[in-house]
Amino acid sequence: MTEVTPDKETRGGEPPPSAPPPAAPPDNGWRKEYWSRNLRLMVILLAIWFTVSFGFGILLVEPLNNIVIAGFPLGFWFAQQGSIYVFVILILVYAKMMDRLDNQFGVDEQETEGAGK
């Protein structure tokens, strides 16, 4: 599996993944914590994603259509407009929250890459 393709270590001068072994045991704590927080955030956002699109837009569309706002039956609005707005917001929230998480755990990328390659 040795790689012929050039890459792997072209980014921002990170040491190759094989470097950490000496510091590996103390590493594990923060890694687990970081990963489980990432997963928690993901699950919450995906739950919202599902509720708004499949829940409001498909499963509950008929009862929601009895409510009409500005000409739109509400279920119809979620299915054709609202869910899309929510998707956009979800990704923005994810990106912002991950910025914070990366920063907190010190795994954010140094903004030196532009100069590099």
Binding site: P15, A19, P22, D27, W30, R31, D102, V107
Partner: peptide, 13 residues
């Protein structure tokens, strides 16, 4: 799974 190597790692790495 981690965007970058950790910043304040034990001295030496």
């Amino acid at each position: 799974r981690y965007p970058a190597n950790r910043r304040e790692v034990t001295a030496g790495t």
